[in-house]
Structures are given as structure tokens and as C-alpha cells.
Design a protein around this nucleic acid. Structure first.
Lengths: 344, 344
DNA sequence: TATATTTGCTTAAACGATTAAGCAAATATA
DNA sequence: TATATTTGCTTAATCGTTTAAGCAAATATA
């Protein structure tokens, strides 16, 4: 009973005794088809439960109306929100989004790219895995003439569109805030230096520390993969120092959470003994005790802009990769973990 | 420069002076093509950077090798993990997964179904939105003869495959655990009764309460949309009772978090004054203070089974919807929020 | 040697929609 | 009335791949 053959435009044509071409045109509201025929076609289409075969039209038109998305993971609020906003913008324009996750793995990312190319996507929007250093696969996308838009985790060497926040300035904001709270010895648990955004956060940290004439020491600047676990380890490393910091700025919320756990377990008062600031404004930062100050990256805006940037490329058929680096300002959300003045 | 026309099998055929058909067969390792030709074809394909046109083959073969996925949201650990495992299984078999989010909205869910049907997916794996009551759209999928597999949020009325945990038994486990901790007045903040899984949790709660001769009162059994906010509201409602409960079992972790916030804010001791248990084992349950006991739903297993169930359907071309309801046992993870004995 | 089988291809028709080109009938313009 | 234009379709090619059918040459079998 479920064996209903799907109706095609040919079936509609047969019912009405007109050509399939006329049906196609009627469905596309071509001006050269009479209103009478159009109405009839639409009626029959409805009756037959006609659903256009996307594969056929995509093949013929040379575009699939699919956009590929690559994110490190979907279970972070940032990426999930970016995804949602990309979908919102693109669905309206008739595009569908294929979401893939790299799980921070370079290999999986390459597989995803192959998969997306194989699926004939019209464009790829991606945020690179932490691991990714080699850009060959992205060059492959570029060489195919498929629009490529990076967000958050991008790369300067790849000459493509990019949307992200101003990581350098954000670091400045954080250090400035901590200085205002009276902190004198600020540590930074940063991400991988080879990832541009983390490198920029590190640079911002260094310059801001210098600006305020605070101690800039190797032992206060630590590289991390920013997982919860590593956040714990790196916080412990800081606690083991003879001269402990009075503030820690962590380049990611998950690692900041790990740090917070260690501090709580060892009954170190946050923020009085050590103030803590994270990055990303994941919802849990507001849920934990004490709540963690963090940087809001405006994921909605990033998602929307990424989608719009793709659309711009899609509209002009000439494949001119006019570069478009959009750097947005972020916002520091101050919570209990660094609000020393209020905590008195 | 980026204007490289994509190579087709025709191009390969021209280079080697053979027919496109021979090329196609060579690439598919047809036994009727000589090894010599196969090697030559593969070499030329590599040289030309040939990438098969998925649309064309899908059109010809009548299957797209795409599987549609509908989840209420991606930014929960449960769904994200299910997605990851579905992808893992299906990618190995040459399928790609199109992920869509309903954001718990019935309308968005219908749009997603239309989108997936339009994209000619070979099957749909879905977990329904909280809002969804009307099943017409799912019937539409069934009537098209496309395999449909539900997980977690399913419906008995829809006669399709389903993979989920035993919600009824899970409620029993929780109540039993709370009884063992010495609780005598156990409340339940449940989900919508019209959603089967939440209804089963409610039934399990009721039967377990009866079994232990505990008070089963209307004011202790509350329906909620299980958001953080509503969790807060419903917890406050319980606190306003003349006769407060000494334990609260919340049918979702996010709502449990809201409840925990209210309890913490009012300096009610968890678990001594009121014990708390959530559902879903979201990572944050282990992060907050106190950590929240919860039910681990084995998302990996659910994802893998959903994918395998689809593959079974895909293999047999006869569209026999042999029903396959897989109900897995869940696991109670006991944490500080309900560990009264240890907390002394 | 004659016939059957296997090997290694080619030819051509699909899959379903789109679209350039064409053509008769209806209508407009001179 | 003669010519030009518009209307409303049809025809046929096309997108890139797959595949049933066919066919000659090579090899095997009787």
C-alpha cells in the first residue's frame, strides 16, 4: 500500500493532455502559460500529491541548493546558535543546510569536505577543528570554485571570507576589567597558538598586560586544548606556582569550568583569592557557582552574516572571491567569578 | 582561474577513446571490464581530479544516499551524541546525514519534513518536538514509502520503528533510590502528558509511589515544559506548599537545574532538606553544585540502533514496515543532589 | 572444424526537470 | 487587408550517470 509511485510532471502532463514542458513552466509561473492552464496544473499537482524531484532539477540547473556546514561540534551553545541562524536565513532563500561535525578532528573534517563536495553543495560554511593546520583540503574547495566562508575558527592564509569577533580587543577588555577589579597578577590559559583566534587572544592578553605594566611571565601564560579536563590540569599547574596569580583568564568556557571546579574543590575563594573569566558565554557559565564572567560572541549575528555572505556569492555567477573579513565586537558579561567589588 | 569545469566520465572516456559506459563500469569495478582499462580509467580520473556527480547517479538510481534527521535541538548533549553516532554508522555505509532542528516547534518540524522530502532523502530519523500532537506530516512520510524511524520522542499511534529507553522503569529506579535514601514525600515535575515518554515517566512515578505506600497527591505531581525557567517556577510552586516534599524528581535536566537554582538561592539544603533527581545526564549535571543525580539514556546506543534500523529498511527494497520497537534499559547516576546518606 | 561461451567493450535509453528554439493561432498594428 | 507581434503551447536537447541489450573478438568445448 505504501508503494505509491511518486508523481512526476509527466503524470500531470498526461492528465491534462499537455506537454511536460508546459507543466514545468506552469509550476514556475511562466508568463507564457495561460492562467487557466496554470490553475489546472496546480490542481492536478495537488491531487497527485506531486513533489518536485529536487535531484532532477538540481542536475539540470547545475546547482543543488544545498549548503554544507562544518562545525567542530554541535553541542555547544555557540555553534548550535550559529547553525540555527544560518538555517533561518538560507531556508528562506530556498537553500537547505547539511550539517556535519568534525569533532575537532582533522581527518573527520577532511572526510566531511569530501562528503560535501560529493553531495554537490553550492557552498561550504565552516569553522575549523582545533587540530587543523594543513589547509590543502580547503584549497581543494576553493579550486573547485565553490564559495567557502569561514567563521570563528578561520585562517588568514586561506584567502576566503571570514566572520568572527575581535579576539584581540576582547582580551583587552578582559584584562582591563580584571585590572579595574584590583587584580595585579593575571594568568592566561590560552588555546593553541596555531589557531588564529587563540593566538589573537594571546596577543591581546600580552599587549594589555604590558600596557598596564603588570608582570608578563612565562609561567602565567599556558597553552591548553581548552577541554574541561585540561582546564583542571592547567589551573592546578597555576596553583602549584610559588607566586600564584590573583586572576585567571581562560580562553574557553569549558576549560574555565574545569578551573572553577579545581578552585572550588580546594576552597579557594572566587573571586577574592582568584578571579576567573572565561570566553564564549556558554549558558552554563551563568548556572555554576559562582557564575563565570565570559565573552558573548554574538553567535546569532555571526550565523546570519555567514549565511548572507554565502548568498552574495551565490547571486553573482562570476566566481569572484571578493574577500570580506567581518570582525564583530564582542561583549564582556561580568558575573560573580570576577566581580570582586560586589562580592565584599 | 577558479573556473575549472568539473570533469565528468565523458571527459575520461574522451581521453582514453572508450565509451562513457565503460568508464562508469570501470569505476564501479565491473567484472566485464579488463584490468588494464580499469587502471587506465582510475589514473585518468585522478589526473582530471574527477569527482562523481552525486546528483546524476542519485537521479538515475532513484536513491539519494541521504538520510534526513530531525531533532528538537542540537545543543543538548543527548541529541548531539545521538547525531554523532548515527553519522558514524551511516557514513560508513555511504550515506550522508542532513541534520535539521525543530526547536521544539511543530511548524518548524513540518517545514523540516517538507525540506527533507524535497531533498529526496532515502529515509528519515526523527525525535519529535514537544509541541507535536498532530501526526499528519509523519503519515505523509509513511505514505511516500520512505523509511521512518523515531527515537526518544516517539508515538505509539504512528506505526513505525522506535528506539528509546524504558521510561517507566527509569521512574521506578528513581523513586526506589529516593526511598532508600529515606525520602517520604516525593514530588514529580513531569513533562507534557501528551508526549509518550513523559507520560510513561509519570505512570512509572505513580506506580512506584503506590508500591511504597507513599503519599500520591495532586499537588506533588506537576506538568511542565521542562525548561530552566519553568523548572524554577514549578520548584517555587512546590516550596509554597504547606506540606513541602522532601524529594523532587524532575523529568528533565534543564528543569532540574532551574529547581536547583531556586533551592540554592533560598538556602535550602540539597539533599538533606530536599533531594533532587533529574533526567538525561546532561554534562552540566556533574558540574553544578551540588551535582545532580540523573538518568543516563545511552545516547550512543540509541543513535547506533536508529542508524542500523534504517539500514535494515534500506537493504530490503520491499517496503515492509516490520515494526521494531527497541526499548533499552537506562542507568541511574547517583550524585550529590540525592546522596543523603553520604552527605552526612 | 564447428559451435558455445566468455570477455570487453559499445549503443542507446533511461532518471525527471529545465529551457532554447520553434510554430501555429490569436490579437494588434499599419 | 496585409503584416507584425503576442500568446500559448510543443519539440527536443540537455544535465551526468547507470544499465539493459547487443555485438564482435577471443577463448573454450564438443
Amino acid at each position: 500500500m505504501g508503494n505509491k509511485k511518486k508523481a512526476t510532471i509527466k503524470d500531470i502532463a498526461n492528465v491534462l493532455n499537455i506537454s511536460p514542458a508546459a507543466v514545468s513552466k506552469a509550476l514556475h509561473n511562466d508568463s507564457r502559460i495561460s492562467d487557466k492552464t496554470k490553475k489546472a496544473v496546480r490542481q492536478v499537482a495537488k491531487n497527485l500529491n506531486y513533489q518536485p524531484n529536487h535531484l532532477a532539477s538540481a542536475l539540470r540547473k547545475g546547482k543543488s541548493n544545498l549548503v554544507g556546514l562544518i562545525v567542530p561540534r554541535t553541542n555547544s551553545n555557540f555553534f548550535s546558535s550559529v547553525i540555527q541562524n544560518i538555517e533561518e536565513v538560507l531556508n528562506k532563500e530556498g537553500y537547505n543546510v547539511i550539517i556535519t561535525q568534525s569533532n575537532e578532528s582533522y581527518k573527520k573534517e577532511c572526510d566531511n569536505i569530501d562528503t560535501l563536495l560529493f553531495t554537490q553543495v553550492d557552498g561550504i560554511i565552516a569553522s575549523m577543528a582545533n587540530e587543523t593546520v594543513d589547509l590543502d583540503y580547503y584549497e581543494k574547495v576553493k579550486s573547485k570554485g565553490i564559495p567557502l566562508i569561514l567563521f570563528d575558527r578561520g585562517e588568514n592564509d586561506l584567502n576566503v571570507d571570514y566572520i568572527g569577533i575581535n579576539d584581540y580587543d576582547s582580551s583587552h577588555m578582559i584584562v582591563e576589567h580584571l585590572v579595574n577589579q584590583g587584580c595585579k597578577r593575571i594568568a592566561h590559559i590560552g588555546g593553541f597558538k596555531h589557531t588564529r583566534i587563540y593566538n589573537n587572544r594571546i596577543k591581546g592578553y600580552i599587549d594589555a598586560i604590558k600596557k598596564h605594566n603588570l608582570p608578563l611571565e612565562n609561567e602565567l601564560l599556558i597553552e591548553s586544548n581548552l577541554s574541561i579536563k585540561d582546564g583542571r590540569a592547567k589551573m592546578q599547574q597555576l596553583l602549584n606556582l610559588k607566586n600564584r596569580p590573583d586572576a585567571v583568564y581562560v580562553a574557553g568556557d569549558y576549560a574555565a569550568l574545569g578551573a572553577l571546579q579545581v578552585l572550588n574543590e580546594q576552597h579557594i575563594n572566587i573571586p577574592k583569592d582568584i578571579a576567573l573569566v572565561g570566553f564564549g558565554n556558554e549558558p552554563f557559565t551563568a548556572m555554576v557557582t559562582p557564575s563565570i564572567s565570559s565573552i558573548n560572541q554574538h553567535s546569532e549575528d555571526i550565523g546570519k552574516r555567514a549565511a548572507l555572505t554565502f548568498l552574495e556569492h551565490a547571486k553573482k555567477d562570476v566566481i569572484t572571491q571578493t574577500l570580506n573579513k567581518q570582525i564583530l565586537d564582542a561583549e564582556l558579561v561580568i558575573r560573580a567569578s570576577s566581580d570582586i567589588k560586589k562580592s565584599h
